[in-house]
């Protein structure tokens, strides 16, 4: 149930809202109210969001840089990095292709059951990650439906890499689709129709008209999808089996180190993931900014037209 954030609103709009409301007495609070609200909300922000983030880096470096580097350079850490990258490298493209296909079908055509389909696509967000892992154990696990057959053919899915990839695909399933569907619905299909009338083929239309129009939304969805793919813990934890050097992703490695009381090492690996989160937020903010300035909202277009 992640990503209440979408590209629908832009940084530019955020900037002028404050000046717009603070300019007039009628839409302004008394100074003490303003400072009270600011004080409480910023304190809340600092304690609940900022402090945990700071704690990760401080704890990571508590025992010095040497411990930090050795924790990251450890073979198990390196293999965890490798597996995390592998899982993301498979899950993200799969869900990217799915997201584009689903958004094309849903946004550009009318058919019955469309809203129901959108709800189904959102489903993985509302399922607990633990259950996301469980469902694959029930199918592919030793006692699962396909378990005996898989054992016979010596195929391992659960407690192996395929299971981790599957769980990752499941939890990141909706990211790209739910970003693109509202965007493409808002854009309508007139531009595509215009391209067809001008003689473009279906592929040319998609390549030259649709894709440039959705590129920021696509990038946005991919960033969020990737962040979740690399950071997923619960679902992967169920199917992984926690075999060091083999089925350990970075978040699972953090857990193992932590449970072995290697706190500094655990936080060192965690700081890597925290950095990934910060990079994600930076790129996301940048995309929001670009999308905001690159394609003015239809509102702005209407203003210009009149």
């Amino acid at each position: 149930m992640a990503a209440a954030t979408t590209l629908a609103w832009t940084g530019a709009a955020r900037a002028d809202a404050a000046t717009r409301f603070e300019a007039q007495a009628a839409t302004r609070e008394a100074p003490w109210v303003k400072w009270l609200i600011l004080g409480i909300s910023l304190a809340f922000f600092a304690v609940f969001l900022l402090l945990p983030l700071v704690a990760v880096f401080v704890e990571a470096l508590r025992k010095g840089w040497e411990t930090y580097w050795s924790a990251l350079a450890h073979d198990d850490a390196l293999s965890a990095i490798g597996l995390t990258l592998t899982a993301a490298a498979i899950a993200v493209p799969l869900n990217l292709v799915f997201g584009v296909a689903a958004a094309w079908a849903i946004a550009k055509f009318e058919f019955r059951g469309k809203h129901f389909l959108i709800t189904l696509i959102d489903l993985p967000f509302s399922v607990s990650p633990v259950i996301a892992g469980l469902i694959y154990v029930l199918i592919f696990g030793a006692q699962g439906w396909l378990g005996p057959w898989l054992a016979e053919h010596d195929i391992r899915i659960i407690f192996a890499v395929p299971g981790i990839v599957l769980a990752t695909v499941f939890v990141t399933f909706p990211f790209v689709a739910r970003e693109l569907i509202p965007l493409m619905q808002a854009q309508g299909r007139e531009e595509e129709e215009a391209a067809l009338v001008l003689g473009a083929s279906g592929w040319q239309t998609f390549r030259h008209v649709t894709l440039p129009n959705i590129k920021w939304g696509l990038l946005y969805g991919v960033i969020l999808c990737n962040a979740r793919a690399m950071g997923e813990f619960g679902a992967v934890s169920v199917v992984s089996g926690h075999i060091r050097g083999q089925t350990n992703t970075l978040p699972l490695h953090v857990e193992i180190l932590y449970n072995e009381y290697q706190f500094a090492a655990a936080f060192a690996v965690a700081s890597l993931l925290a950095l990934l989160a910060l990079v994600t937020l930076t790129v996301k903010t940048w995309v929001e900014h670009r999308a905001g300035s690159g394609t003015p909202s239809s509102k702005a277009q209407q203003d210009a037209a009149s």
Partner: peptide, 18 residues
Amino acid sequence: DALIDLPFALPTAVAGIA
């Protein structure tokens, strides 16, 4: 404003130990 989304981006295990 950008950091508000931290809980979306930060892996849950990291948040947990922090």
